[in-house]
Nucleic acid binder design. Structure first.
Length: 272
DNA sequence: AGGGCTACCTGTACGC
DNA sequence: TGCGTACAGGTAGCCC
């Protein structure tokens, strides 16, 4: 599920609720996620305060006062719930007990994970060492794009590649390319600088707007009762095959195709 | 080397 | 109602 705007929303939600808060107890319900949760996880974090919560790409990093970190990925269906009292449901895997709140990690498909790292190790971990720049940073600019887009694939797959730029997923790649008026099948070797510029600007514009709306709710993106997920109403092409294009107004021009086994949505009339 | 395919897991929607 | 199939926002490891 969660792409950069959703993970950013989760980060803000966790920060506002648990930054500076002390974990009293941790309970593993099911350790078998993508990677096994260390059975001795309590040993690292019990009675310690969360000092800062970061996001890098689609990853969450929780920093504790003893300098150990939790690296968390939500996979496709991972999410957090806050409870007043323990009230578990199917696919709850990990519980953090605070003084007055309980934080539960739930993940139906178990593609997510929770790993323990020393702070000097987490950025050098296999997950973070090779990923590309943050799309909202100054580093992701025309100069970067020119030098790193000399690839033998199409622009959709390039944007999906976390080593090229971190945090974009299947929804936002379609939305970004629609906004930039670029055909997702276009070979990234053939992009003109002017088109690269449009992709960069659209990336920043769409992500910024999506974060402002609290990300996109599709199925499993639940963050307690917070007002989130309203970018779903702002989607222009994702999940809208056979619709008319909101830009060129031609009917039935939103097509769904497969690229690298994933659905791509685009306007076959105005994305060139 | 890097790009494509597949596996991982569970739920849902749909056709028959 | 039930069964089989396809598909769903993710990554990573294998293969060529």
């Amino acid at each position: 599920m969660p792409e950069l705007p959703e993970v950013e929303t989760v980060k803000n939600f966790l920060s506002s609720n648990f930054n500076g808060k002390r974990i009293q107890k941790i309970k593993i319900i099911n350790k078998k996620l993508r990677y096994e949760i260390k059975p001795n996880i309590s040993k690292y974090f019990i009675n310690l305060i969360i000092t800062k919560i970061y996001r890098r790409g689609k990853y969450l990093i929780l920093l504790f006062e003893n300098n150990y970190t939790l690296l968390i990925h939500l996979g496709m269906t991972g999410y957090f719930r806050i409870l007043d009292k323990e009230n578990l449901i199917k696919h709850d895997h990990l519980i953090f007990y605070f003084k007055s709140k309980i934080l539960v990690f739930n993940d139906i498909r178990k593609f997510g994970f929770v790993k323990i790292y020393r702070p000097d190790e987490v950025l050098k971990s296999q997950h973070l060492i090779k990923i590309g720049p943050e799309p909202l940073s100054k580093e992701y600019d025309l100069n970067y794009f020119k030098h790193k887009s000399k690839r033998k694939t199409n622009i959709k797959n390039l944007l999906m590649n976390q080593y090229f730029v971190a945090g974009l997923g299947n929804i936002y790649c379609s939305e970004i390319l629609f906004d930039a008026e670029i055909n997702p099948k276009k070979n990234c070797n053939n992009l003109k600088p002017e088109q690269m510029k449009r992709i960069i600007l659209s990336t920043k514009k769409i992500l910024t707007k999506a974060i402002k709306f609290g990300g996109t709710t599709i199925k499993n993106f639940i963050v307690s009762n917070e007002k989130i997920g309203y970018f779903k109403n702002e989607l222009k092409v994702y999940g809208k095959e056979h619709s008319h294009c909101v830009r060129c107004k031609k009917v039935y021009k939103i097509k769904k195709i497969l690229q690298n086994g994933r659905s791509t949505f685009f306007c076959s009339n105005c994305q060139r």
